[in-house]
Design a protein around this nucleic acid. Structure first.
Lengths: 162, 162
DNA sequence: TGTCTTGCGCAAGTTTGTTGCATGAAGGAG
DNA sequence: CTCCTTCATGCAACAAACTTGCGCAAGACA
């Protein structure tokens, strides 16, 4: 009679996967249309979506904007190497990078570098200012390598759902 | 009397930016709530959103999913170096990378490497299979460097809107 | 076999999104 | 300086979508 855990695994069936596949392409798709696509009624679709939102499988529902149209045409990748891998210093670096709005993505990685950042800025001058705040101001940053993106060939967060 | 261009620049005012800032956090926010936040009526918000969707400022509306909960817990970054930078070969590589669903992001970059990929896979075995299809099968790929992500500190597509 | 649980579809109710219309501000031409 | 056109707004009505209660059927378990 024990209640299931709050974060129950809640395995996903093929209906759920089909719904997610639609939502991660266009989450404005009406539930009625989704229902027709997966052979389920609209309320059934709605309940499944709600469950997946509450369980965290669906993390967010967001609009994807065009950076170039918003005056932020430059994408930059940065490999960051730190001086010390002491856990508290690493955590501090993570928080610092994650808190910067210009940092779209931050990965803590194996290999020569320790962090890999994806950054969006309006200009190289803006990037220069950001390096001061993010890297030069952090004494644990040993060095960083800047790579400028010429073409944003593909940029999504979609996950292959088999 | 000439009609404005189809892709008119359509400059954005501070209302638009405020709306976008809300939408790129949560695009399920009711227009009424957005209206209250930006001091505009719901229909005004709706018309601005529609215009920005049509003009391409809003590129998509998507659900963000948790890769780990969907059996794809491994994120990998790959630097790819090509043999020849002949434009047709580069374009072919772009198409090939962009077509792979495991490739979340693909950047064509300056510097030593030519491409930087962000890849999501279920297992290292799956990644090994992907390298065969994506890199070993492409004779223009000179070499590639694999970096495994230990922590996905931050992963979004949000743009700083000042 | 009986019971419990779970998820479904249907239908009604509620919220949200959408459109027609009149008003007022901004810009240009006469 | 005034008229006229354009454009975006708010209000109100309408349409569409989301949400919930309910009865039912299928599977799990004793």
């Amino acid at each position: 009679m024990a209640k299931p855990l709050l974060t129950a695994p809640a395995e996903l069936d093929h209906f759920d996967l089909a719904i997610l596949d639609i939502l991660q392409r266009d989450n404005a798709t009406p539930q009625r249309v989704i229902g027709e696509a997966v052979n389920l009624s609209a309320p059934a679709v709605q309940r499944r979506i709600k469950r997946m939102e509450e369980s965290g499988v669906i993390q967010a529902n967001v609009a994807v904007l065009d950076p170039a149209r918003l005056g932020q045409p430059i994408t930059i990748l940065v490999e960051v190497e730190v001086e010390s891998e002491r856990i508290d210093l690493i955590d501090a670096a993570k928080k610092s990078f994650a808190a910067a709005p210009e940092v779209q993505q931050c990965y803590y990685v194996t290999g020569e570098a320790d962090f890999m950042l994806v950054i969006i800025v309006a200009s190289m001058a803006a990037y220069e200012g950001l390096t001061r705040r993010l890297f030069f101001a952090n004494h644990n940053v040993k060095r960083f390598r800047t790579v400028v993106v010429m073409d944003r060939v593909k940029a999504s967060l979609a996950i292959p759902l088999i």
